[in-house]
């Protein structure tokens, strides 16, 4: 792992979906076992170039997510390496039993990508807004859950999963991400990335909340608070070692996620802390609510997913030390 924090955290030019498609095409060129499945969202996912290049290895099953997952599992039983996509809620909630049994319990080799995480589902509204996708998937034994934060991390992780065996859920922002990492950065699945050191508190963040955490840490510095920031891009297996070390070294933890705090990052970190090194902890995330419709900026405020929400929780947790 050698991750370098981007000098300028600006919106990337390339959309995440395009980086995803390009990466899969790169993999498919080298490995004919790579196959792609979708449930009538190939256009939304920007996967048309893959379809054009590899029509025989593209399976758009139509609007039937449960079947898509089963077909992916069946393909993997014959040695194929399937990547199956839908919007987050439909890639998880809609077909959980198929993922659990046909993929997980059956010990088959399937990668599932759920796009439009949390508030980024924006104008599609509550029906399409997964605050629970990672939490649902966390219940599957031995699954790996990833939330790449930008296109650099996305490319690296997708390439890694292609060469691993098991069930993988990748929570994928579809549009442009804020650049967090410099080109060439590499990552280790299951290891959090320290983006900034600090001694008073550790902010553990994932997805779109990583940039908010960095903004919060920068603003807190002005107030004389030194905040460490970790990008916990692997929700499962969670990086216990780094969480315990941060608890010991900074004595307080704040988690930040674009997801329900129940069974998401907040839960996962809390489980590690209470069993190993209890320290004051606060969570930023969605507190057991359904999604709503609106512009993303509005929803971030509405669900308290901003840098100032993180700052508030940091101050609260430090007061509890």
């Amino acid at each position: 792992m050698s991750a370098i924090l981007a000098k300028n955290r600006i919106r990337e030019d390339k959309e995440m979906r395009n980086a995803y498609c390009e990466t899969l095409m790169e993999l498919a060129e080298k490995d004919e076992r790579i196959v792609v499945l979708d449930a009538d969202l190939m256009s939304s996912m920007g996967m048309k170039p893959f379809l054009k290049a590899y029509p025989e290895r593209t399976f758009n099953v139509g609007i039937q997510e449960a079947n898509m997952i089963g077909v992916a599992a069946g393909l993997s039983a014959t040695g194929k390496i399937p990547f199956a996509h839908s919007f987050g809620p439909f890639a998880t909630r809609r077909c959980f039993d198929q993922i659990f049994l046909s993929c997980g319990y059956s010990r088959l080799n399937v990668r599932i990508t759920g796009s439009d995480p949390g508030v980024t589902a924006s104008y599609n509204g509550g029906t399409h807004m997964p605050f629970e996708d990672m939490g649902i998937m966390r219940n599957i034994p031995d699954i790996t859950i990833l939330e790449p934060v930008d296109s650099v991390m996305l490319r690296d992780l997708i390439k890694q999963t292609a060469n691993l065996y098991g069930v993988f859920y990748t929570r994928l922002l579809r549009k442009n991400a804020v650049k967090i990492y410099e080109e060439g950065s590499t990552f280790e699945i299951g290891k959090g990335v320290q983006l900034r050191d600090g001694k008073d508190v550790t902010i553990i963040a994932t997805g779109i909340m990583v940039d908010e955490a960095l903004k919060a840490a920068e603003a807190l510095e002005v107030d004389g608070i030194s905040a460490r920031v970790l990008n916990m891009f692997t929700l499962k297996p969670i990086d216990k070692e780094t969480i315990i070390k941060s608890a010991e070294e900074t004595g307080a933890i704040v988690t930040a996620e674009n997801h329900n705090v129940i069974n998401g990052l907040g839960s996962a970190v809390a489980e590690v802390l209470v069993e190993n090194r209890p320290v004051p902890m606060e969570r930023v995330g969605v507190f057991d609510r359904f999604g709503e419709v609106g512009p993303e900026s509005y929803l971030r405020e509405r669900f308290n997913l901003t840098a100032s929400d993180i700052m508030e929780k940091v101050k609260k947790v430090i007061a509890r030390k």
Binding site: E56, N67, M68, A72, G74, L75, S76, T78, Q98, L101
Partner: peptide, 24 residues
């Protein structure tokens, strides 16, 4: 050849297996 028990799921698995074998 395949794990089953939750009814209906074997049908999709069979489609996947048939597709995979045909691809090869």
């Amino acid at each position: 050849d395949m794990t089953t028990g939750s009814l209906g799921q074997g049908s999709s698995l069979a489609v996947g297996v048939a597709l995979g074998n045909r691809l090869d």
